[in-house]
Each structure stands twice: as C-alpha cells, then as structure tokens.
Amino acid sequence: MYNEPIFLEPVLQERIWGGNKLSTEFGYQTPYEHTGEAWVISAHPNGPSKIKNGPLEGNTLQDAWEKHGKLFNRAGAASESYPLLVKILDANENLSVQVHPDDSYAQEKEDVPYGKTECWYVLDAEEGAELILGHHAKNRKELQKAMENGEWDSLLKRVPVTAGDFVYVPSGTIHAIGAGIVILETQQSSDITYRVYDYNRTDVNGNPRDLHLKQAAEVTNIPHEAPKEEIVQETIEDLTIRKLVEEAYFTVYHWDLRGNAILERKGDFLQVSVIKGKAEIVIDNKTFPLEKGVHFIIPNTIKDFSLQGNAEMIVSHT
C-alpha cells in the first residue's frame, strides 16, 4: 500500500506580466526574468508536475493518474483527465482581461475535456491592489459594443483586495488579476483562455497579443452576478478549518494549524499547499516535514494522518 504523501515539483511558466516573487518568497528556482506562474499540482500536458519521493519518484502526476488509479480511487487506467490544477501566480503587472468557457463549450469548440472554473486565495497584495471581476453590460449586444469600442473603464467591475481574501470565479466570468497581487489558484485542469483586453501590450517580438473577442462574447455570463460566498468554519483540536467554497468541480479549504490535529482524508484524494509556516505530517509513524512552498497529495490509500506545527495551508479535493 502507498503510505506516504506524494510530494510534487512545481513547473515554472514564463509570463509577460510575471516577476520574481516565486523565487524570493517561495524559494523556487525561476528560469525566466518574468516568471509568472508555478504550476504546483498539475497533470496538465502543458506543465505536468514531477513526483519528488516514494516509489513513483521521477514520474509525473499524469503518469501516476494513468497507471496507478488506486491512488485516486480509480479502477484501472484513467478514462478521464486529472480534474484539478493548482497554481501560484505572481502578477508583477496587470494580467490580461480574460474569460474561460464552461465544459460543454470547451469540449465542443476546443476539443479539450474541461472548461475552467477557478478560485483564488490572495497570498499577498500591495496597497491599493485590485482585481477585475465581472462587467456592467445588461445584454450580449451591449457587451459586444463595449468590447469593440474599447469602453473598458465603463464596462469592467473592479474589486480591491488584501492578503487573505478569497475569490470564486465561475466559468464565463470576465476577470483579471491586477499588478502587485500573488494568489494561489485552484481550478479545473484547463488551459483555455479567451483574452478580451491586454492594455495594448506586445509580445517579445513586438507583435500585439491575440484577442479572442468572438469567443469571449459567446461564453461570458450576462448579466454578471457575483457568486454568493458562504464560508463555514470548524475546529478539530488545534486546527481551524474554513471551507472557502464547495461546488461541482472542487471544494477548497483554508487550514490554520496551531499545534496538533488528527484528521481523516476527505474526497478521493486531497491536494495540500503550504502557504505559511512549518509543520509535520505523520502517517503510519513516518514523519514528513512541511514548510511554505511545499505541495503534495494525500492519496486514497491513506485514510487518516496527523499534523503538528504552526502553518497555514490551502487544501482541495473534487
């Protein structure tokens, strides 16, 4: 039986808007001047994480998903793609204004298994930082007209954020992460983005970056409705658990550990990202150290475990 966490190596991604906080704040070896994303729990073909320990060391998470289904409560080989993707994003500059399709549109138009519903936990935000979340258009004709005329100031809704804020972003929501924000993103395992506006930036070759106004107009939710958030909190020994969101694709928690706790695994498997502090996880009398920037999966073969230390984590499952 597989009786240890599956620790994962982040995959670093270059982005025009990226900075250096993935190196300075998390200690990752960033290969680019503008490193915007660390795909920290990923089985997506555009950046699969490698396993760092145990019998599957050196394999990718995708390998494990396809060949070792019991770890994820799957019988035999996987007929579906790994469902989730966890990232840390460092927005040194504004990200493009964008929108993602739902499953049915992504499958029909892009021939990929998943659309993209996502959520953000704000790890850091400079004073005055803000997100774009939603729009003011009353119907699709009004949305298309505002896009074509570049009426961005009147069209887009802006939201100030600070560290510790949580934002749920269903597919079809126009959005953008603003400059000076670092987030941990939990999302469906999809890399489909329709760019709406990009501040007239150019790529490394001096060419304007592509926009996808037709697709964006087709998939955007109209009118925009802010999701209703109901955060539920419970305490297990010295662990405070805040359930940030529970919906069709994922459930996401914030764990605040201040001592010791014994827990049972929830979901078919559990994804864990340490965002602050140090701790240990103990499984079958084996102890594994945890610290900020460590990401791992508790597989289905592990039913219970204990934690000890002082740390904060973002935890998710399907």
Rank of each mutant, 00 (worst) to 15 (best):
M1T: 07
Y2F: 09
Y2Q: 06
V11C: 06
E14G: 04
R15V: 03
W17S: 02
W17P: 00
G18K: 13
N20E: 14
L22A: 14
L22R: 10
H34L: 03
E37N: 07
V40S: 14
I41N: 13
P48N: 06
P48I: 03
S49K: 07
G54S: 02
E57G: 05
G58R: 07
L71W: 02
R74D: 10
A77P: 06
A78M: 03
S81K: 15
Y82H: 10
P83V: 00
K87C: 12
D90I: 05
D90F: 06
A91M: 12
N92R: 07
E93G: 01
N94A: 01
Q98Y: 02
P101N: 14
Y105Q: 04
Q107K: 15
K109A: 11
K109E: 15
Y114V: 11
Y121R: 05
D124R: 15
E127G: 04
E130R: 12
L143D: 02
Q144C: 14
A146C: 01
E148I: 00
N149G: 01
W152D: 05
D153E: 15
S154C: 10
S154Q: 15
T162Y: 13
H175V: 09
G178R: 00
I181Q: 13
E185C: 08
T186S: 10
Q187D: 06
S189F: 11
Y194A: 00
Y199V: 01
R209G: 03
L211I: 08
H212E: 02
H212L: 01
L213T: 01
V219G: 05
T220N: 04
N221F: 03
P223V: 06
E225S: 00
E230T: 07
I231H: 08
Q233H: 02
I236Q: 13
R242D: 13
E246M: 00
E246S: 12
E246G: 03
A248G: 04
T251Q: 04
W255V: 00
L257C: 06
L263I: 03
R265C: 06
S273E: 14
K276C: 13
E280L: 06
I283R: 03
N285K: 13
F288T: 12
P289T: 05
V294N: 14
T301Q: 13
K303R: 14
K303F: 09
N310V: 11
I314N: 13
